[in-house]
Amino acid sequence: MTRRSKTLAVALALLAGPVGAEVNDTALAAARPPANLSEIGLFDDMAAMTPNAAVVPYTISAPLFTDYALKYRFVYVPASAGPAAYQGEDVLDLPVGSVLVKTFAYPDGAGGIHRVETRLLIHQEAGWKAWPYVWNEAQDEAELKVAGKDFALTATRPDGSTVDVAYHVPNVNQCKGCHVGTDGAFRPIGPKVRNLNLAEEGGNQLDRLVASGIIAALPEDRASVPMTPSYEGEAVPLEARARAYLDANCGHCHAPGRPADTSGLYLNWEEDRAIHRGILKPPVAAGRGSGGFAYDIVPGDPDHSILLYRLDSTDPGIMMPELGRSTIDQAGVALIRAYIESLGG
């Protein structure tokens, strides 16, 4: 396309209005991302956060706690690239050109939401890239903030109480702090089949993702499709809920080959060795994060377990996870406390 015809095309697209526009694959492939989120065309209506027809909403069964933020997830796979092949293990291999979109928001107190940031994980030829966009006051545009940004805001807990949050939009390096594969390359974390395998209105989410061209066909034996339970599901056994919670909040770093493997503490769903899951495991480099305790988990004794101590702290030198929260997940702490108590037999 010549420069002139390109300009013409852009002008025509603008005249046609945002509705029905296409996602800007060229912007997604560029080395430097656009300064404004709207330029990528993921949302037909920025103010309403109405996704483009090709941008598919999804949820995951066991999400990471981030200061009680509401999260809105979308995935875009270019029609030309085709769906990701089904795989039971690890993160879906979404093709080049795909984007994972996650908007963080809080209730605005008037029945709506106030969006704080939208993070993009873009699969380019050279690998995955992460870019954070911060929303404006008018809530109709979000601006790229490479170095992240800090906000003070107030969040509401599920029980209705409020808590002050020192919200930190992570910079791209901090994104990689968790979003890194065993090969050292950037990678998504959440969209594993086992996290997407959940019931939703009208059926199972996986079927909708297949119908939307995100995932190729599922195996015929649906019982073989793995599932991480929701850690909030009352019907799920306590240990499974606890392990789902630890997998979602810790397992992306605390797993073999991942950023926190220097500790030998592995909290990913697949880990089965008790010592590596922290049971009677002494710390290696915890420093004051040990809280003066000798083991990560003392079965039956949560108050002498380093794991719980670090979940129950907001001191940057103590708390775990290191990033993504400035408050304590009270429900998560209660869950892990109950789990450690239950191990006492």
Partner: peptide, 12 residues
């Protein structure tokens, strides 16, 4: 006055 991050400077 550090309020976030588990270390001062992280190099990866």
């Amino acid at each position: 006055n550090q309020s976030g991050g588990a270390e001062g400077l992280l190099i990866t």
